[in-house]
Write a protein that binds this DNA or RNA. Structure first.
Lengths: 107, 107
DNA sequence: TATTTGCGCAACTTGAAAGTTGCATATATA
DNA sequence: TATATATGCAACTTTCAAGTTGCGCAAATA
């Protein structure tokens, strides 16, 4: 099944993995050493991250280096953009308030 | 239990709720009309969003208008900031590649 | 070649989340 | 006051994700 990036990011371990490999590509074993869980558990997280293309594998013999895919992470940034005006403009906040009050008046 | 914002946005219904009330504050009933599920189901999503302070209630008689809390949403933006350089600077991407190659060489 | 190492896949257990129905409470309205 | 409406809480079922153990395969190494 195709994973979605929002669910991928929901897990704290996966967020930690992303933070790690954003600095430097790592193998599954190297990642597992950082967390208090089995390698297979980490491997499942890698699978999720790979399926939604947040990370990309680079084979090197029997090792696999997983790289951070910044481009995919931008999708999250784009989703967030729809809310950005909500905190960047106070006028907008005021507008919401006025709209709400007006709406209540018509009920 | 205190919810975390990453899990809160993992659910597509909750993301839809946020998109709706970012434009205008709504009551639980008004939200439920937008989705194909019971009012109670929506109410549970509201509870999650409220617990992590992504939305704020405004009581008005027996109705409750839920407002979007843009300030809390900024936490995503802050988390995302650590990755922003990864897609904003090609030099940085190249740097990662070089670091990885060098790392492999020392193994 | 035989053995070790790195990795992925499958089956299983457990716990939590998403949805349902039913009920209680508070406010508005007849 | 009696009734209707808006909401939240509790119990329950079902689905699914996170973790485990066990196994198989490919590549490196003795």
């Amino acid at each position: 099944m195709k994973q979605d990036i929002f669910q991928a990011i929901a897990d704290p371990t996966r967020r930690a993995i992303l933070t790690l490999i954003a600095i430097q590509a790592l193998t599954p074993n190297a990642m597992a050493e950082k967390f208090d869980m089995t390698r297979q558990a980490v491997s499942k997280h890698i699978k999720v991250l790979h399926e939604c293309e947040l990370i990309k594998p680079e084979h090197s013999g029997r090792e696999i280096y997983y790289h951070f895919n910044a481009k995919k992470m931008q999708e999250f940034d784009h989703w967030l953009a729809q809310f950005r005006q909500n905190w960047e403009t106070q006028f907008n906040q005021l507008d919401h308030l006025l709209t709400t009050i007006k709406e209540q008046g018509t009920k």
